[in-house]
Amino acid sequence: MGRKGRDWGPSVRYRKYAVLVSVLLISLLFLSLGTRGGGTGKPGELLAFFITPLQAALSKIQSSAFGAWSAYLDWKNARRENQALREELERLRIQSLQVEDTQRENLRLRRLLALRDRLPLSTLAGEVIAKEWGGWVRSVTVNRGRSDGIVRLTPAIVPEGLLGRVVEVRARAAVIQLLNDPSSAVAVMVQRTRTAGVAEGEPGGAVRLKFMARDGGGAQVGDLIVTSGLGGVFPKGLPVGRVIAVEDKGSALFHYARLHPVADFARVEEVLLLTGQTGADLLPHFSLELLEPGA
């Protein structure tokens, strides 16, 4: 960058000083004219005439640029705020779902506890930890096992009625065979006519009432089916389901009916395991509204 060593001619060498002196003189002249006139003077006015529009234009450009920058910052802030609000909304949604879930769980547990308090036999509450929902086996696993005193064939109920029975006991878990398991069979009766039969699960997931004697009134659509207490596995009077269709087999010896189970197998999350024994009819201990047709 330095110009050391370059051979400047005498005219070039002195030209810069000539320029300096000229410029200084002009400046002093401007100063002198300005101070004598009491203002910027005519040179100033002449210059101002040309530069004022330029100044205005530059100012406009500058304000536009800063305006655009300000708009960009506003937009960026709005975007950040939008993102924060979206995250907040998402968090509140999750929180709301958690609250709803907790409320539902609370309601379920309250109903289960209320039933436990009403029942005249000892029970143990369990939480569903696994579900098997294939066509071959339909079962749920609860977090109660041998260490809790659970034994094989212990009945499992929900606030609406019978769920199934324990078919396998492990140290800290038990597998409950559901009513609609294809290998499940429960001795039941029509609550209205006391006609006995067997409720069996089907591979399709339905529950069927079989071997119901033709004589004695049989069953009608809407009838409540409860456990009969025969066989010694289930106490008497546990709601099983409602008749939704009666199949006429002509002159066959028995009636058949399709049932709508009272328990919602797909959504069950907590169960009561009936660890005690009783000979009493348990039906009066279940909520009446749950036993109403269409409930």
């Binding site: 300096l20 410029v23 200084l24 002009i26 400046s27 002093l28 002249l29 401007f30 100063l31 002198s32 004219l33 300005g34 101070t35 910027t40 003077g41 040179p43 100033g44 210059l47 101002a48 530069i51 100044q55």
Partner: peptide, 19 residues
């Protein structure tokens, strides 16, 4: 000089010093 005129001060002062 531009500054002097634009700022409304003594015309020539900044022209001189900046030169």
């Amino acid at each position: 000089l531009l500054q002097d005129v634009a700022a409304g001060g003594f015309v020539g002062a900044q022209a001189l010093t900046k030169a």
